[in-house]
């Protein structure tokens, strides 16, 4: 699509800055106006071979918002989130059914290239996994292989700033990424994801292995990130979901052996003050089982 291409050629942060300015001026631009894309998921089911892990999920992921996914272990949160950038099918025998729209594009359409999709929908994993390269290269690498032709120093600095890591590493960019603390490594991975300028960022328990201070730093970046990106985060930390997200989805398995399903989805405020369904309330209040 022509307009979209023009949008992509500009730096995402620039686009968003314009967007924010436009919003301030009040000329009608709003989140989800196409500059940052949301996702629309329809009847998504995910399988490992013949085992159905997730069934019939339909959900709108709002642009420029943080959507948190919570639920008991094994209910399919990771499986689901991996379907949102076609990482799921990387596992042998795994496949997904249904529709996942990124803006106007069905990412599961025959014409969609998974490699491009994974660039546009970036992912940060539970365990920080920096490359055995310098801090600088960790951030620059992805952008370079994606053919980034702008000012690389500027991109690295901007991404590190956005991930709230710049101040801590600006004097040792040439050092190995492995020399950083766990929390710093995780923020490095966030910076690396940001450097390829995705539209959506998926995070699967990004802070679960981190100490409270690093966790706080990651949470603080979240508010920043959603200015420019659409964020989906899986977390086991209920208070974290309550603190950082705008929308919350609760995944649940009704009976042992059944696939996981999206049991309730609503504004975070509602989910943590007065959810509609009993199972959700039992889960968020810790009265599970």
């Amino acid at each position: 699509m022509e307009t979209e291409k023009t949008g992509r050629e500009r730096k995402v942060s620039e686009v968003s800055r314009d967007q924010r300015d436009a919003r301030k001026k009040g000329d009608g631009a709003a989140p989800g106006d196409g500059l940052t894309l949301g996702m629309k998921i329809q009847d998504l089911s995910a399988f490992y071979g013949s085992f159905k892990a997730v069934t019939d999920v339909s959900i709108d992921i709002q642009a420029n918002k943080v959507t948190a996914l919570i639920g008991p272990s094994g209910c399919g949160k990771s499986t689901f989130i991996r379907c949102l950038n076609r990482m799921h099918e990387v596992i042998p025998g795994a496949r997904a059914e249904g529709h996942v729209m990124l803006g106007e594009q069905d990412i599961y359409a025959k014409t969609s290239d998974p490699v491009v999709i994974r660039r546009r929908v970036g992912m940060v994993f539970q365990k920080p996994n920096p490359f055995s390269k310098s801090i600088y290269e960790n951030v620059a690498w992805g952008a370079r292989i994606n053919g980034y032709r702008g000012d690389m120093d500027e991109l690295v600095e901007r991404s590190l700033k956005h991930a709230a890591l710049w101040e801590e590493v600006k004097d040792r960019l040439k050092e190995s990424g492995h020399g950083l603390s766990g929390g710093q490594q995780q923020r490095l991975c966030i910076a690396r994801t940001l450097a390829v300028e995705p539209e959506v960022i998926l995070m699967d328990e990004p802070a679960s292995a981190l100490d409270p201070v690093s966790t706080q730093k990651i949470e603080d970046t979240m508010d920043q990130l959603k200015q420019d990106y659409t964020v989906v985060i899986v977390t086991h930390n209920m208070q974290q979901a309550a603190r950082i997200s705008d929308y919350t989805g609760f995944f649940y398995i009704e009976n042992m052996g059944d696939p996981g399903q999206l049991w309730e989805f609503d504004e975070t405020e509602k989910m943590f003050s007065n959810p509609e369904r009993k199972e959700t309330e039992d889960y968020v209040t810790g009265r599970f089982g």
């Binding site: 209920m238 309550a242 943590f272 003050s273 007065n274 959700t280 309330e281 968020v284 209040t285």
Partner: peptide, 8 residues
Amino acid sequence: APVARDLR
């Protein structure tokens, strides 16, 4: 850190 019915 109560939520939902506990918070209410």
